[in-house]
Computed example of a mutant assay.
Amino acid sequence: MTFSELKPEITNITSNSLTSVDKKLLKICELLEAHIDYYNWVGFYFKNGDKHELKLGPYVGEPTDHTIIPFGKGICGQVAVSNQNFVVPDVKAQDNYIACSITVKAEIVVPIFVNGENIGQIDIDSNTADPFTEADERFLEFVCKEVAKIL
Rank of each mutant, 00 (worst) to 15 (best):
I69R: 03
T128N: 03
L56Q: 06
N16V: 01
L25S: 04
N40Y: 08
G61E: 11
S20E: 12
T11A: 15
D22F: 06
V147S: 04
Y97F: 15
E134R: 09
C100R: 03
V114L: 08
V60E: 05
V109G: 05
I98K: 08
K55N: 01
T2V: 01
K105W: 10
V88K: 11
E137C: 09
A129L: 15
V110S: 15
F132G: 00
M1C: 11
C76T: 05
Y39C: 04
H35I: 00
I108P: 04
K47L: 08
A93G: 00
I108S: 12
D37A: 10
N48I: 01
G116E: 01
P70G: 02
V88T: 14
F71I: 02
I68K: 07
D136L: 05
F3M: 00
Y38R: 10
F3R: 01
E5D: 11
V91F: 07
A99M: 14
Y59L: 10
F142P: 02
V87P: 09
H35D: 09
E53M: 05
D95S: 13
D123F: 01
P58F: 09
V81L: 14
L56D: 00
A135S: 13
Q78E: 14
K7A: 14
S15Q: 15
K47I: 11
S20Q: 13
V21D: 03
F139L: 13
H35K: 15
T133N: 11
A106G: 06
F86H: 12
C100Q: 10
V21C: 00
V88P: 08
V147M: 02
G116D: 09
E107P: 06
S17C: 01
P70R: 03
H35G: 00
D125N: 13
C144P: 08
S20K: 04
I150Q: 00
I68M: 06
D125T: 10
V60R: 13
E141D: 05
I98R: 07
F142H: 10
A93L: 13
D90I: 03
C76E: 01
K149C: 04
A148N: 08
A80D: 03
E30L: 15
S101E: 06
S15C: 09
T14F: 02
E134F: 11
K24Y: 06
H52W: 01
H35V: 00
H66M: 11
P131H: 07
V91M: 03
E134A: 15
Y38N: 12
E53C: 08
K47C: 11
V104A: 11
L32K: 06
C100T: 10
L6P: 02
S20H: 05
M1L: 14
A93P: 00
I112D: 01
T128I: 15
Q121L: 06
G72L: 06
